[in-house]
């Protein structure tokens, strides 16, 4: 649907990939997101920060309609991906999620081999015509996920047998394998040790060359390290959104300042 639109467009560094306008989310009676406007730029890492329960993960899950799987969740407002409303009735959420990939808080490799984990997405989307092409896709994804060197000799070993950091990079590689345009990451490092975290952060920085990355994080240092743009959420409101350097050095809103200096959270 948005394919036609997208193909004609020339990619520009500051082009807006996702534009959210007046987004409201209700979980049953709970008003989780209150009137949020955000622009996600292409080839940029955007960080969502804020105290627990502020709605940043909820908002992230709106961007690829993962909230559809929760029956009591209701989303209002508009979210435009390349100018097309993703909550339009004609949009197929399955197709959308192939374009807007997601990496979760806890590494969740499927109980299959490393190879099959990566090949899962390409297979269901019919991206490879034969085994050789699939092999190529898998190798490319694993290389871009910065895990190829560690697993190339045991592609048939189960993905669940890897260490936590390796599992998370496997999941990132798995998300990349379907060639999404946007990659959503929900606290991808919260279950990892510092070394694995550093590896994943490095990977995120490299991904910026090809993708628009949105990352939810609890760690302000991480947001400062990996992102160019930062959005601060508090109690379901988007309090402040701007360049990461500005947010961390010269925040406009007193609540942002309190949070990054550690007074609320």
């Amino acid at each position: 649907m948005y394919d036609a639109l997208h193909r004609q467009k020339e990619v520009d560094v500051n082009e807006i990939k996702i534009a959210a306008r007046g987004v409201q989310v209700h979980y049953g009676d709970n008003h989780a997101i209150k009137d949020v406007d955000v622009d996600i730029e292409d080839k940029t890492v955007t960080a969502f920060i804020g105290p627990s329960g502020c709605g940043k993960s909820t908002f992230l899950r709106c961007l690829n309609r993962m909230n559809d799987t929760i029956p009591i969740c209701r989303v209002e407002g508009s979210i435009l991906l390349d100018g097309e409303d993703i909550y339009d009735k004609r949009v197929d959420p399955v197709q959308l999620r192939a374009k807007v990939g997601m990496v979760f808080q806890k590494p969740n490799p499927f109980p299959k081999s490393i190879y099959d984990n990566i090949a899962y997405g390409p297979r269901i989307h019919g991206m490879a015509r034969n085994k050789a092409e699939l092999d190529e896709i898998v190798e490319r994804a694993l290389r871009r996920g910065a895990i190829w060197e560690e697993v190339k000799d045991r592609l048939n070993a189960p993905g669940t047998g890897l260490s936590g950091g390796q599992q998370q990079r496997l999941c990132i590689a798995r998300a990349i394998a379907t060639e999404p345009e946007v990659l959503l990451m929900d606290e991808p490092c919260s279950a990892l040790d510092p070394i694995a975290t550093a590896q994943v952060e490095e990977l995120i920085d490299e991904l910026r060359e090809n993708y628009s990355v949105v990352i939810v994080t609890h760690s302000m240092q991480q947001a400062a390290r990996v992102s160019q743009r930062t959005a601060f959420f508090h109690l379901g409101n988007l309090v402040e959104f701007g360049d990461t350097s500005t947010i961390f050095t010269n925040p406009e809103d007193p609540r942002t300042e309190s949070y990054i200096t550690g007074r609320i959270g």
Partner: peptide, 13 residues
């Protein structure tokens, strides 16, 4: 549930 989410997140039906 995380396995299902992972699969949906890759665009599986």
């Amino acid at each position: 549930q995380s396995l299902r989410d992972g699969s949906y997140g890759l665009g599986a039906t």
